[in-house]
Every structure is written in structure tokens, then in C-alpha cells.
């Protein structure tokens, strides 16, 4: 397993390097000037030029790229132009917030999607199947900005039982923090939960047709034990693969939910960085996003390989 993991590392490094080049130069192609954004309205050209010099933006592009790369390799992500704070600190704080949101959403997605997928997989009646199928279609089709706003209107403005937005005390005081987390996590979890449900039900139907299930029934194994102990585990590999992708999308999709619920996460930070043309912060965030995708994909492959030795042997 260790050798299998090691073999996959060089390609990950190459992807990261190529991503760093693409991110850096594409950002420079985008119109807009961080110095102008920083100088604010009505600033003169002289003021903007002075700020450009202070930020080192008047240096050749290749020099700026190498300075950035050197910083990253030495563990110094630099300072945000707009927010004036160390980028490592900004990212760690907002990543923590997004992780909190994503974990909350993941729990809802796995529990909710898992349950619905499971029941859809074993459902015999057409009505039940149609209802559950409609439910998952709804979860996938309705955008998070619609469900988010609906949840706010119902539970924050209408009933006033949950806060309309913000992060509150977070995990520092979970008795309050969960109330801030509940609505954004549910809104974010719906597409993922619905996707999990669909994959699980489809996979379970395939598994239920396998011979070993009939053998199990013939041997008199209790149905619940047969389902939990044999059918579900054998149905999980495709769900795990899609879950790996969905985790990445949870982080990516958080940007909309974070905006609606004023959740100070990584999506909000990225939005602020991009709109303010905060080059360093944007570059670091995008590179970290690439890194997260690579790591999640790597972990998914490793888990797949651990669960199914055939995969390990095929890729050896």
C-alpha cells in the first residue's frame, strides 16, 4: 500500500507545479489592478503607482512568480494586499470555518443521502420509489441559493428560531454554534446527499441481483444482517468514489452558501480576493484548492485500493 501511494506522488507534484504557473499567469491576464482597488475611489495615478511599487507589482512578472514560488516552498504565503494580514492566518481561519461547514454538510449528506439511498435501493413499491426518486431529483436540481434563501425566510425571518447568518461562536460554544451551522449545512448538503442517495440505490439494486445475496437468503441469514453486513458494503465502492469528488465540490460549492449565510469561510475569502484582485491571496487559495483536490482524490484511490485488492493489483 505504501509503495502504491508513493508511486502516485510524482504526478501530484507535477500537477501542482503546472497549476501554479497557470494560476499565476492567468490571474495577471485578468483585467484590474490590485493597487487601484487598494487605493480606493478617486485615487490619483501617482497614488496608485506608489502602491504598486510598495506591493512589488512593478517588478517583471517572472520575478514576481519566482518570489511567490520561493515563499511557498519556504512556507511563507505572504501578506494579503487588501486584508493586510498574513495569508496563512487568513486561510487557516477561513478554512477552519469552511471545514466546519463542510463537515456539517457531509454528515447531513451521508446520513440523509445514505438513508434515502438505502430505502430507495430496497423499495419495492413504485410509489415509494417514485417519491424517493423525486426527492433526490429535487435535491440535485434545486440550487443552493434557492434552498438557502427559503430556509432563511422560513426559520430566520418567519419563525425566528435560527439566526439568518454568520458563524456565531462556532465550535467554541457548540450549544450556540450549531444553530448558526444548521441551515447552511443543510443547504449545502442537499445536492451531495441526493447524489449519494442515487449512487447508493443504484449500486444496491445491482448488488441485490448478485448470486451471493440469494445464497445468503437460502442459508437463512437475517435480512437486516444480510443488508447491513453484505449488500451495503458491497454497494459502497462507487459511492465512495463519488463521495471523494463530492467532498471537493462541497468545498467549492460552499462559496454560494457562505455568501447567502455570511459564513466567513474560504469561499468568502476567495470571493473577496478575486474581486479585489488580491493576487497573492487568490494564487495561494487556488493552489491550495488544487492541492485539496489532489489529496482527496489520492485518499479516495487509496481507500478504494484498500477495500478492493483487484484495484491495487491492476494499478500496480
Amino acid at each position: 500500500m505504501f509503495r502504491y501511494t508513493l508511486r502516485r506522488l510524482p504526478s501530484a507534484v507535477v500537477v501542482l507545479f503546472v497549476a501554479s504557473v497557470v494560476i499565476f499567469f492567468i490571474l495577471r491576464l485578468a483585467p484590474g489592478d490590485p493597487a487601484a482597488a487598494l487605493a480606493g475611489p478617486d485615487a490619483s495615478t501617482a497614488t496608485v503607482q506608489a502602491i504598486r511599487h510598495q506591493l512589488g507589482l512593478d517588478q517583471p512578472l517572472i520575478t514576481q512568480y519566482l518570489i511567490w514560488l520561493r515563499g511557498i516552498l519556504s512556507g511563507d504565503l505572504g501578506n494579503s494586499y487588501i486584508l493586510h494580514a498574513p495569508i496563512a492566518q487568513l486561510i487557516s481561519e477561513s478554512l477552519m470555518n469552511t471545514t466546519e461547514l463542510a463537515i456539517g454538510a457531509l454528515v447531513f449528506a451521508i446520513v440523509g443521502g445514505g438513508l434515502i439511498g438505502y430505502f430507495q435501493g430496497i423499495a419495492k413499491r413504485r410509489a415509494s420509489q417514485a417519491t424517493l426518486s423525486a426527492l433526490t431529483s429535487f435535491g440535485i436540481a434545486i440550487p443552493t441559493y434557492v434552498t438557502g434563501v427559503l430556509l432563511i425566510l422560513l426559520f430566520a425571518v418567519g419563525w425566528r428560531v435560527l439566526p439568518a447568518g454568520g458563524i456565531g461562536p462556532g465550535i467554541r460554544d457548540f450549544s450556540l454554534g450549531w444553530q448558526y451551522l444548521l441551515m447552511p449545512a443543510i443547504a449545502l448538503s442537499l445536492p451531495t446527499g441526493a447524489t449519494i442517495a442515487r449512487f447508493l440505490s443504484a449500486s444496491m439494486r445491482q448488488t441485490l441481483d448478485q448470486d451471493f445475496v440469494q445464497t445468503g437468503i437460502a442459508k437463512g441469514i437475517r435480512p437486516s444482517r444480510l443488508m447491513i453486513g453484505h449488500v451495503v458494503p458491497n454497494s459502497l465502492p462507487p459511492v465512495l468514489t463519488v463521495l471523494g469528488i463530492q467532498i471537493g465540490q462541497l468545498f467549492g460549492g460552499a462559496i454560494i452558501v457562505e455568501t447567502i449565510f455570511a459564513w466567513p469561510g474560504i469561499g468568502q475569502l476567495l470571493l473577496q480576493a478575486v474581486t479585489g484582485r488580491d493576487y497573492l491571496l487568490t494564487q495561494d487559495l487556488l493552489l491550495i484548492a488544487v492541492l485539496v483536490f489532489i489529496v482527496v482524490q489520492l485518499i479516495t484511490d487509496i481507500v478504494d485500493a484498500a477495500m478492493d485488492p483487484r484495484i491495487r493489483l491492476e494499478r500496480a
Binding site: A164, G165, G166, I260, A262
Partner: peptide, 18 residues
């Protein structure tokens, strides 16, 4: 002072008493 980027979300926070 809290940053809430979306005007509708600001309005919701005001209307919810937050």
C-alpha cells in the same frame, strides 16, 4: 461590525433581529 456581502442577506439579518 460584521461583513455580509449580499444585500438580501443583510436584510434577512435585520429582519430576523440578528
Amino acid at each position: 461590525i460584521t461583513v455580509v456581502r449580499d444585500s438580501q442577506s443583510m436584510l434577512s439579518q435585520l429582519k430576523s433581529g440578528q
